[in-house]
């Protein structure tokens, strides 16, 4: 039996088991900590920092910081909400996010965070970077204009599919997702049924031929904000 203990999030007592992250324990308790790169069942790597919380007064990424007995976590505070909003705005200006023609619109987690945080326009300047597409594979394409470097595809391909199709290359603003082959996506052993095909939070890794299948009004985030499912658990 793993050990159970208690800590608090914004003053509310939350139960956790040894080995759980703050974000996992919060999610189980029906408390939504906004997150982007984190995905259940993948090894978290805390890259996007949207889930930043304060633990006993110090900033930590909730998806990688283990829950511990007695810690005091701040989550829904104006300070943290402002920081998270800034991060989301920076992700929008750093890439080329054309929601109006993106197949993922309505189901996109970055867009949904924009909605949840009430972002009408980012305060930073758009960078309009030059990003590369790869449409060489018959069933899959990559549009790096939309990539937020969450790393989910890298982790899923490596840890679940055992293929290591994706990898990060470059540093800083030039960092990008590459495919682990000398040429293109069509030269890898990726297949449409891979876990790495189903993890992209944005419209970067796309299955060809299925775009715009769901009508507007029936998509994941058309009627309620991201995190609503978690908050409902609270009852």
């Amino acid at each position: 039996m793993s050990e159970k203990f208690v800590f608090t999030i914004d003053g509310v007592e939350v139960k956790a088991t040894q080995g759980q992250s703050i974000l996992e324990a919060a999610t189980e308790a029906g408390i939504y900590i906004p997150s982007l790169c984190y995905m259940k069942d993948l090894i978290p790597h805390g890259s996007c920092r949207v889930c930043t919380v304060k633990v006993d007064g110090r900033f930590q990424a909730g998806c990688v910081q283990p829950a511990a007995p007695g810690i005091k976590v701040e989550n829904d505070t104006p300070e943290l909400m402002e920081i998270r909003k800034d991060i989301i705005e920076m992700l929008f200006v750093e890439g080329n996010h054309y929601c109006m023609f993106c197949e993922k619109s309505g189901d996109c987690e970055l867009q949904a965070l924009g909605y949840r945080f009430g972002i009408a326009a980012p305060k930073h300047k758009y960078l309009f970077p030059d990003r590369k597409l790869d449409a060489t594979h018959p069933e899959i394409f990559i549009d790096r204009n939309r990539c937020v470097l969450c790393g989910r595809c890298v982790n899923a391909s490596r840890d679940v599919d055992g293929k290591t199709v994706f990898e990060f290359v470059g540093r800083g603003i030039d960092k990008t997702v590459a495919v682990n082959s000398d040429a293109n996506l069509s030269d890898t052993d990726i297949s449409i049924g891979d876990k790495s095909m189903d993890v992209c939070p944005v419209g970067c890794i796309i299955k060809k031929g299925v775009g715009f299948k769901t009508p507007i009004g029936q998509r994941t985030y058309d009627h309620e904000p991201i995190g609503s499912d978690i908050e409902r658990r609270k009852g």
């Binding site: 929008f92 080329n96 996010h97 054309y98 929601c99 109006m100 023609f101 009408a120 326009a121 758009y126 309009f128 970077p129 030059d130 990003r131």
Partner: peptide
Amino acid sequence: SVGDCAIMGGLPAMRNN
């Protein structure tokens, strides 16, 4: 600013790179 073009350039901004 009304609409995505006024806010982020929109489709015309696809020429920006």
